[in-house]
Write a protein that binds this DNA or RNA. Structure first.
Lengths: 194, 194, 194, 194
DNA sequence: GATGAATGAGACTTCATTCAT
DNA sequence: GATGAATGAAGTCTCATTCAT
């Protein structure tokens, strides 16, 4: 057990080091040697846990994406009303983006560059089902506009991505009041107009 | 004049080649040799027009950003009502993002990676002033919510960025009706509620 | 121990190869690839032992300079008379210059070109102290003229540098008798006249 | 005539630029483009006056060497006594080395590196004949020791080379008194002992 | 004669990956 | 399992030289 834990330790130390370095310098300025160094292992050791650099980044992407999804649905239940459920999920996402800075940044970088293979990207979406289900219910109930899920996702998540980027660069800070305003804006964008 | 034109040709051939390769493979998988090759010149020739690789990408970023801004304000006039003016700008942006695919993609990649220096990024924003002025007027007139310009920008432009990405990957297509729906969503997000 | 030895082997093979190539073709016609080749390693291996080319040459300079200094004071003791001590040192230097041809040549080239950084050059002088001490004593005893150490050094070492250069080019050979004559000339130059 | 002068102007501007750049950065850090730039001409123009870079440096070496020789024998006449004649020549050399800093530096760098071809180096010696003649006379008259001309040259010129190097680096300055002392040392080294 | 854009060759250096230990 | 020395391949950039104008 101790051994297994040690293995896990090195693996996650490597994932962590990769996260940090890719964020700070980009995929191709995060050499394996530095990753190993930051993780406190020898370069060759990386290849005991990952096939190659691409595999390392793919695995990291999937883990972070899963982490994000888990956070997104914390406290959410299908029994809630559409608006209440959506509100919980939205604030979860907002808080994740604004607090888990390294992770959010990494995802943003991955999502806009050819650094992650398409297949992996698609795999990373599988945890989002409950949100899609919620929207489906919302549309049926006439609470949410009959828009494509892609459009709904665009208005739900992407404005936050921009604000997170600004916050990370120290240009703008989204406080609690700002979050509430942003939620209202999001809700107004997708809710059915009376 | 013929000479001048030739110079311009090589320079813009290089910018074009860079745009293509960075889009397809990312900054660090777009080697100078391939850029030169695609542009039909020798690698050393690049250094007659640009200081180094970073400079080449910076210049490309600024030119594309300017191109984007120009397109954004085509047909716009300060004499228009806030909503009409905003509508023109929004559709301009939408059309640019959906049609100038290479350019939009490149900007998205730049904006989410450490590949462009902060100073250059800031320089790239200078053409957006008319939009900020419009929002300022909209807030005064009580038509637009008194939100930070960053929040307004987030809801105006970023959902489109996501949809463009989806379209580029062949996952979703935003047709004319979709554009109108998205505009409505955007407007509902930022307009004052009655 | 075997491992340590191997490391030393590669490192010194590289230093040796550098010495040879810089002598024969000059700093900038001694490419890293040829140095590696002559040392029997891959180019990238150089960077395991040295930071870069300049560092490699700096380290070589310091090692050769130390080697030279060590040779210069072999058999010398502070208990000897000024003249006897000086004679020993002078002949040591002469023999080094005439026998350790590659090393001497290299030092001469370094000392007259901008190829070594000033700071390194100064560090290379630190082993010469015993000679300065001897001159100090000689001046106090009235045996050596009260000249600046720089002038004394100029007459002690530099004529030999020229003769070594000539010998290396096969133009002139300094035999034992010639060495004795040269020593006499040196001593006459710096000793107090009666 | 004006045309011819202009040609000469460009040629000597190029030689001058080369002198400066080689001194400051060494042969191989003095690129043709910078030489052209400093001389105020286009790179291709160099090849109208010189065959290639090596030829340019060779020609510069010969011109500087000739300049040096001319200076060395200024005011000298074969009618002077051996000592008086030698004194004149020695001070001429000393003054040249200490005042014509760029030229002296360049010669020192050339004489200790493989940057000048041997044939050119030998050609550069041809102007020294009057000094050799003087030594020949001195030996016949019993005023100068029957040493090889190479040894005599070593003691006459090389100590000055070292002192010039020190002066150029700002480490030591040879004032008038120092020059006189150095001449005395030189003379003591080569004159016949009574 | 003069130019300067253009380039082939080659320089230094980095890095993902392997392999003997 | 873990290492770190080693390297082949490739990257960015420089430079002496040429050639059409």
């Amino acid at each position: 057990m101790e051994k297994k834990e040690k293995i896990t330790n090195k693996r996650s130390a490597l994932l962590n080091a990769t996260l940090t370095l890719v964020n700070n310098h980009g995929f191709h300025n995060a050499p394996m040697s530095k990753i190993a160094n930051l993780a406190g292992v020898a370069p060759a050791t990386i290849y005991l846990y990952f096939e190659n650099k691409q595999d390392l980044v793919n695995k990291l992407y999937l883990e972070v994406k899963e982490d994000f999804s888990t956070a997104a649905f914390e406290g959410y239940s299908e029994n809630l009303s559409v608006k209440d459920g959506f509100e919980i999920i939205w604030f979860n996402i907002a808080n994740y983006k604004l607090n888990q800075i390294k992770e959010s940044n990494f995802l943003a970088q991955c999502d806009n560059s050819p650094m992650i293979e398409e297949a992996i990207r698609i795999e990373g979406l599988k945890h989002l089902q409950p949100l899609l289900d919620l929207w489906s219910r919302g549309k049926k109930e006439g609470v949410i506009k009959p828009l494509s899920d892609y459009v709904l996702y665009a208005f739900t998540v992407y404005p936050l991505s921009f604000l997170q980027g600004m916050q990370e660069r120290g240009i703008y800070t989204l406080d609690e009041a700002g979050k509430v305003e942003s939620f209202t804006a999001t809700w107004n964008a997708i809710k059915t107009e009376k």
